[in-house]
Protein backbone atom coordinates (compact mmCIF):
# COMPACT_ATOMS: atom_id res chain seq x y z
CA UNK A 1 0.00 0.00 0.00
CA UNK A 2 2.53 2.53 1.15
CA UNK A 3 4.86 1.59 -1.69
CA UNK A 4 2.25 2.41 -4.28
CA UNK A 5 1.45 5.71 -2.66
CA UNK A 6 5.10 6.66 -2.52
CA UNK A 7 5.64 5.70 -6.14
CA UNK A 8 2.61 7.58 -7.34
CA UNK A 9 3.59 10.83 -5.78
CA UNK A 10 7.36 10.57 -5.94
CA UNK A 11 7.72 12.74 -9.03
CA UNK A 12 5.67 15.58 -7.56
CA UNK A 13 5.82 16.84 -4.01
CA UNK A 14 6.47 14.42 -1.26
CA UNK A 15 3.47 13.46 0.81
CA UNK A 16 4.02 14.30 4.45
CA UNK A 17 1.69 13.24 7.17
CA UNK A 18 0.94 16.22 9.40
CA UNK A 19 -0.51 15.96 12.87
CA UNK A 20 -3.40 18.12 13.94
CA UNK A 21 -1.07 20.30 16.05
CA UNK A 22 1.22 20.91 13.10
CA UNK A 23 -1.72 21.76 10.82
CA UNK A 24 -3.04 24.17 13.39
CA UNK A 25 0.33 25.87 13.75
CA UNK A 26 0.65 26.10 9.97
CA UNK A 27 -2.75 27.76 9.70
CA UNK A 28 -1.90 30.10 12.54
CA UNK A 29 1.47 31.02 11.04
CA UNK A 30 -0.22 32.08 7.81
CA UNK A 31 -2.45 34.51 9.73
CA UNK A 32 -0.41 37.72 9.80
CA UNK A 33 -2.60 39.48 12.34
CA UNK A 34 -2.22 36.62 14.82
CA UNK A 35 1.53 36.53 14.34
CA UNK A 36 1.83 40.27 15.02
CA UNK A 37 -0.41 39.86 18.06
CA UNK A 38 1.78 37.03 19.31
CA UNK A 39 4.82 39.27 18.79
CA UNK A 40 3.23 42.03 20.86
CA UNK A 41 2.37 39.58 23.63
CA UNK A 42 5.93 38.24 23.65
CA UNK A 43 7.25 41.82 23.86
CA UNK A 44 5.04 42.53 26.87
CA UNK A 45 6.11 39.27 28.53
CA UNK A 46 9.71 40.28 27.86
CA UNK A 47 9.04 43.71 29.36
CA UNK A 48 7.66 42.03 32.48
CA UNK A 49 10.66 39.68 32.74
CA UNK A 50 13.34 42.34 32.29
CA UNK A 51 11.67 44.81 34.68
CA UNK A 52 14.53 44.54 37.24
CA UNK A 53 17.10 45.17 34.50
CA UNK A 54 15.19 48.24 33.31
CA UNK A 55 15.23 49.45 36.89
CA UNK A 56 18.98 48.77 37.06
CA UNK A 57 19.78 50.48 33.75
CA UNK A 58 17.77 53.60 34.54
CA UNK A 59 18.84 53.48 38.17
CA UNK A 60 15.24 54.02 39.30
CA UNK A 61 13.37 51.55 41.45
CA UNK A 62 9.61 51.30 40.78
CA UNK A 63 8.62 52.89 44.09
CA UNK A 64 11.47 55.35 44.60
CA UNK A 65 10.32 58.99 44.52
CA UNK A 66 12.64 61.45 42.77
CA UNK A 67 11.20 64.66 44.10
CA UNK A 68 14.20 66.74 42.98
CA UNK A 69 14.84 65.42 39.48
CA UNK A 70 11.46 63.86 38.72
CA UNK A 71 9.26 66.84 39.52
CA UNK A 72 9.37 70.38 38.22
CA UNK A 73 9.83 73.13 40.86
CA UNK A 74 6.06 73.62 40.93
CA UNK A 75 5.53 69.88 41.59
CA UNK A 76 4.45 68.92 38.07
CA UNK A 77 5.67 65.53 36.74
CA UNK A 78 8.57 65.65 34.27
CA UNK A 79 7.85 64.58 30.70
CA UNK A 80 9.71 61.94 28.68
CA UNK A 81 13.39 62.81 28.33
CA UNK A 82 16.95 61.55 28.74
CA UNK A 83 16.67 60.94 32.48
CA UNK A 84 13.13 59.54 32.60
CA UNK A 85 12.47 57.92 29.22
CA UNK A 86 8.70 57.84 29.60
CA UNK A 87 8.36 60.65 32.12
CA UNK A 88 7.48 60.58 35.81
CA UNK A 89 4.27 60.44 37.80
CA UNK A 90 2.86 62.73 40.49
CA UNK A 91 5.38 61.52 43.08
CA UNK A 92 8.37 61.72 40.75
CA UNK A 93 8.51 57.97 40.11
CA UNK A 94 9.78 56.58 36.79
CA UNK A 95 6.80 55.69 34.55
CA UNK A 96 8.82 53.26 32.39
CA UNK A 97 10.00 51.21 35.35
CA UNK A 98 6.51 51.19 36.84
CA UNK A 99 5.10 50.16 33.46
CA UNK A 100 7.43 47.18 33.33
CA UNK A 101 6.58 46.06 36.87
CA UNK A 102 2.90 46.74 36.18
CA UNK A 103 3.07 44.35 33.21
CA UNK A 104 3.93 41.60 35.71
CA UNK A 105 0.78 42.25 37.71
CA UNK A 106 -1.44 42.52 34.63
CA UNK A 107 -0.13 39.37 32.98
CA UNK A 108 -0.03 37.31 36.17
CA UNK A 109 -3.54 38.30 37.24
CA UNK A 110 -4.87 38.03 33.69
CA UNK A 111 -3.48 34.59 32.95
CA UNK A 112 -3.87 33.12 36.42
CA UNK A 113 -7.47 34.30 36.89
CA UNK A 114 -8.45 33.16 33.39
CA UNK A 115 -7.05 29.68 33.92
CA UNK A 116 -8.77 29.35 37.29
CA UNK A 117 -12.07 30.57 35.81
CA UNK A 118 -11.74 28.09 32.94
CA UNK A 119 -11.12 25.25 35.37
CA UNK A 120 -14.27 26.06 37.31
CA UNK A 121 -16.20 26.45 34.07
CA UNK A 122 -15.04 23.06 32.81
CA UNK A 123 -15.88 21.28 36.06
CA UNK A 124 -19.33 22.88 36.30
CA UNK A 125 -20.09 22.62 32.58
CA UNK A 126 -19.01 18.99 32.22
CA UNK A 127 -20.79 17.88 35.39
CA UNK A 128 -24.02 19.66 34.46
CA UNK A 129 -23.93 18.52 30.85
CA UNK A 130 -23.04 14.91 31.56
CA UNK A 131 -25.35 14.11 34.45
CA UNK A 132 -28.33 16.21 33.36
CA UNK A 133 -31.51 16.08 35.44
CA UNK A 134 -31.39 17.57 38.91
CA UNK A 135 -27.62 18.13 38.85
CA UNK A 136 -27.90 20.10 35.61
CA UNK A 137 -30.87 22.01 36.97
CA UNK A 138 -29.00 23.07 40.13
CA UNK A 139 -25.76 23.97 38.36
CA UNK A 140 -27.53 25.83 35.56
CA UNK A 141 -29.50 27.91 38.04
CA UNK A 142 -26.25 28.64 39.86
CA UNK A 143 -24.72 29.81 36.55
CA UNK A 144 -27.78 31.96 35.85
CA UNK A 145 -27.51 33.40 39.34
CA UNK A 146 -23.87 34.43 38.93
CA UNK A 147 -24.69 35.94 35.55
CA UNK A 148 -27.60 37.99 36.86
CA UNK A 149 -25.60 39.73 39.54
CA UNK A 150 -24.23 43.26 39.09
CA UNK A 151 -20.64 42.04 39.24
CA UNK A 152 -18.72 45.30 39.51
CA UNK A 153 -21.01 46.50 42.31
CA UNK A 154 -20.60 43.19 44.14
CA UNK A 155 -16.86 43.44 43.64
CA UNK A 156 -16.96 46.92 45.20
CA UNK A 157 -18.99 45.58 48.13
CA UNK A 158 -16.52 42.73 48.69
CA UNK A 159 -13.54 45.05 48.55
CA UNK A 160 -15.15 47.56 50.89
CA UNK A 161 -15.81 44.75 53.37
CA UNK A 162 -12.38 43.12 53.31
CA UNK A 163 -10.09 45.85 51.98
CA UNK A 164 -8.29 45.68 48.64
CA UNK A 165 -5.66 43.01 48.00
CA UNK A 166 -4.19 41.05 45.12
CA UNK A 167 -5.79 37.78 46.25
CA UNK A 168 -9.21 39.34 46.58
CA UNK A 169 -8.93 40.85 43.09
CA UNK A 170 -8.13 37.46 41.60
CA UNK A 171 -10.94 35.80 43.57
CA UNK A 172 -13.47 38.40 42.44
CA UNK A 173 -12.40 38.13 38.78
CA UNK A 174 -12.57 34.33 38.86
CA UNK A 175 -15.92 34.27 40.61
CA UNK A 176 -17.60 36.55 38.08
CA UNK A 177 -15.92 35.17 34.93
CA UNK A 178 -16.58 31.43 34.84
CA UNK A 179 -20.32 31.44 34.17
CA UNK A 180 -20.54 32.24 30.41
CA UNK A 181 -17.91 29.64 29.55
CA UNK A 182 -19.58 27.03 31.77
CA UNK A 183 -22.75 27.54 29.75
CA UNK A 184 -20.94 26.92 26.47
CA UNK A 185 -19.15 23.83 27.81
CA UNK A 186 -22.40 22.43 29.15
CA UNK A 187 -24.02 22.73 25.73
CA UNK A 188 -21.11 20.98 24.05
CA UNK A 189 -21.06 18.19 26.61
CA UNK A 190 -24.79 17.54 26.16
CA UNK A 191 -24.33 16.95 22.43
CA UNK A 192 -21.08 15.01 22.93
CA UNK A 193 -22.51 12.62 25.52
CA UNK A 194 -25.18 11.48 23.05
CA UNK A 195 -22.55 10.30 20.59
CA UNK A 196 -21.68 6.71 19.83
CA UNK A 197 -18.16 6.71 21.25
CA UNK A 198 -19.55 7.63 24.65
CA UNK A 199 -22.12 4.84 24.45
CA UNK A 200 -19.33 2.48 23.39
CA UNK A 201 -17.19 3.49 26.38
CA UNK A 202 -20.12 3.00 28.71
CA UNK A 203 -20.91 -0.43 27.32
CA UNK A 204 -17.27 -1.38 27.89
CA UNK A 205 -17.86 -0.63 31.56
CA UNK A 206 -16.36 2.85 31.92
CA UNK A 207 -17.64 4.84 34.87
CA UNK A 208 -18.91 8.44 34.68
CA UNK A 209 -15.59 9.95 35.80
CA UNK A 210 -13.64 7.96 33.24
CA UNK A 211 -16.05 8.91 30.43
CA UNK A 212 -15.93 12.58 31.40
CA UNK A 213 -12.14 12.74 31.60
CA UNK A 214 -11.05 10.24 28.94
CA UNK A 215 -13.80 10.57 26.32
CA UNK A 216 -15.40 13.98 26.67
CA UNK A 217 -12.65 16.28 27.92
CA UNK A 218 -10.28 15.84 24.95
CA UNK A 219 -13.12 16.88 22.64
CA UNK A 220 -13.43 20.15 24.54
CA UNK A 221 -9.82 21.21 23.93
CA UNK A 222 -10.70 23.74 21.24
CA UNK A 223 -13.38 25.69 23.13
CA UNK A 224 -11.27 25.57 26.31
CA UNK A 225 -8.17 27.01 24.61
CA UNK A 226 -10.13 29.64 22.70
CA UNK A 227 -12.25 30.75 25.65
CA UNK A 228 -9.31 30.89 28.04
CA UNK A 229 -7.35 33.05 25.58
CA UNK A 230 -10.36 35.32 25.08
CA UNK A 231 -10.84 35.53 28.85
CA UNK A 232 -7.30 36.81 29.47
CA UNK A 233 -7.92 40.34 28.09
CA UNK A 234 -11.20 40.48 30.03
CA UNK A 235 -9.40 39.57 33.25
CA UNK A 236 -6.64 42.10 32.57
CA UNK A 237 -9.20 44.88 32.02
CA UNK A 238 -11.19 43.74 35.07
CA UNK A 239 -8.06 43.96 37.24
CA UNK A 240 -7.11 47.33 35.76
CA UNK A 241 -10.65 48.60 36.39
CA UNK A 242 -10.53 47.47 40.03
CA UNK A 243 -7.13 49.10 40.49
CA UNK A 244 -8.34 52.23 38.68
CA UNK A 245 -11.17 52.52 41.20
CA UNK A 246 -8.68 52.01 44.02
CA UNK A 247 -10.11 48.56 44.81
CA UNK A 248 -7.42 46.33 43.32
CA UNK A 249 -3.68 46.23 43.74
CA UNK A 250 -2.62 48.19 46.79
CA UNK A 251 -0.24 51.11 46.13
CA UNK A 252 2.68 51.65 45.96
CA UNK A 253 2.90 48.33 44.05
CA UNK A 254 2.79 49.39 40.40
CA UNK A 255 -0.14 48.25 38.27
CA UNK A 256 -1.42 49.70 35.02
CA UNK A 257 -4.87 50.40 36.45
CA UNK A 258 -3.27 52.03 39.49
CA UNK A 259 -1.05 54.19 37.27
CA UNK A 260 -4.15 55.35 35.39
CA UNK A 261 -5.84 56.07 38.71
CA UNK A 262 -2.84 58.22 39.73
CA UNK A 263 -3.17 60.09 36.44
CA UNK A 264 -6.89 60.55 36.93
CA UNK A 265 -6.73 61.92 40.47
CA UNK A 266 -6.92 65.71 40.36
CA UNK A 267 -7.11 65.39 36.54
CA UNK A 268 -3.31 65.47 36.63
CA UNK A 269 -3.08 63.82 33.21
CA UNK A 270 -4.25 67.02 31.55
CA UNK A 271 -0.80 68.48 32.26
CA UNK A 272 1.06 65.16 32.08
CA UNK A 273 -0.34 63.27 29.10
CA UNK A 274 2.23 60.47 29.37
CA UNK A 275 0.64 59.36 32.65
CA UNK A 276 -2.43 58.29 30.66
CA UNK A 277 -1.05 57.49 27.26
CA UNK A 278 1.81 55.24 28.43
CA UNK A 279 -0.13 52.79 30.65
CA UNK A 280 -3.30 53.30 28.55
CA UNK A 281 -1.57 52.29 25.33
CA UNK A 282 0.11 49.35 27.04
CA UNK A 283 -3.26 48.17 28.33
CA UNK A 284 -4.92 48.64 24.93
CA UNK A 285 -2.12 46.86 23.04
CA UNK A 286 -2.20 43.92 25.45
CA UNK A 287 -5.97 43.40 25.29
CA UNK A 288 -6.00 43.94 21.53
CA UNK A 289 -3.20 41.42 21.02
CA UNK A 290 -4.91 38.76 23.14
CA UNK A 291 -8.24 39.34 21.37
CA UNK A 292 -6.66 39.06 17.92
CA UNK A 293 -4.73 35.96 18.95
CA UNK A 294 -7.93 34.44 20.36
CA UNK A 295 -9.73 35.06 17.06
CA UNK A 296 -6.82 33.60 15.12
CA UNK A 297 -6.62 30.55 17.40
CA UNK A 298 -10.32 29.90 16.94
CA UNK A 299 -9.98 30.02 13.17
CA UNK A 300 -6.84 27.88 13.19
CA UNK A 301 -8.11 25.25 15.63
CA UNK A 302 -11.53 24.99 14.06
CA UNK A 303 -11.17 25.78 10.37
CA UNK A 304 -14.77 24.74 9.79
CA UNK A 305 -16.13 27.57 11.90
CA UNK A 306 -14.91 30.81 10.40
CA UNK A 307 -13.02 30.81 7.12
CA UNK A 308 -14.68 27.88 5.42
CA UNK A 309 -18.09 28.97 6.59
CA UNK A 310 -17.39 32.38 5.17
CA UNK A 311 -16.55 30.90 1.78
CA UNK A 312 -19.58 28.67 1.79
CA UNK A 313 -21.79 31.58 2.70
CA UNK A 314 -20.51 33.60 -0.20
CA UNK A 315 -21.55 31.03 -2.76
CA UNK A 316 -25.33 31.29 -2.70
CA UNK A 317 -25.05 35.04 -2.71
CA UNK A 318 -22.80 35.13 -5.75
CA UNK A 319 -25.01 32.58 -7.45
CA UNK A 320 -28.14 34.57 -6.88
CA UNK A 321 -26.60 37.68 -8.35
CA UNK A 322 -25.41 36.10 -11.57
Amino acid sequence: MSDIAENDFSQGTEVVQRGSLELTLRRLRRDHASMIALGVILCIILLAIIAPWIAAITGHSPIEQFRDTGLSPSGIPVGPGADFWLGTDQLGRDVLVRLAYGARVSLLVGVFASILASMIAVVVGVTAGYFGGMVDMALSRLTDLVMSVPFLLCALALVSAFGPSLMLSVAVIVFFSWAPMARVIRGQVISLSRQDFVHASRSLGAGPLSIMVVDILPNLTVPIIVYTTMQIPNSIVFEATLSFLGMGIVPPTPSWGGMLADASSNSLYLVAWWMVFVPGTALLLTTLAFNILGDGLRDALDPKSARTARHLKRKPKGASKS
Binding site: F244, G280, L283, T287, L288, N291, D295
Partner: peptide, 17 residues
Amino acid sequence: LTGLSFPTFVLGMMSLY
Protein backbone atom coordinates in the same frame (compact mmCIF):
# COMPACT_ATOMS: atom_id res chain seq x y z
CA LEU B 1 -11.67 44.24 17.78
CA THR B 2 -10.53 47.71 18.79
CA GLY B 3 -13.84 48.51 20.48
CA LEU B 4 -13.83 45.24 22.39
CA SER B 5 -10.26 45.80 23.53
CA PHE B 6 -10.43 49.48 24.50
CA PRO B 7 -10.92 49.81 28.27
CA THR B 8 -13.62 52.47 28.71
CA PHE B 9 -11.66 54.50 31.23
CA VAL B 10 -8.62 54.67 28.96
CA LEU B 11 -10.78 55.82 26.04
CA GLY B 12 -12.52 58.33 28.33
CA MET B 13 -9.33 59.85 29.66
CA MET B 14 -7.74 59.99 26.21
CA SER B 15 -10.83 61.69 24.75
CA LEU B 16 -10.92 64.21 27.58
CA TYR B 17 -7.29 65.06 26.93
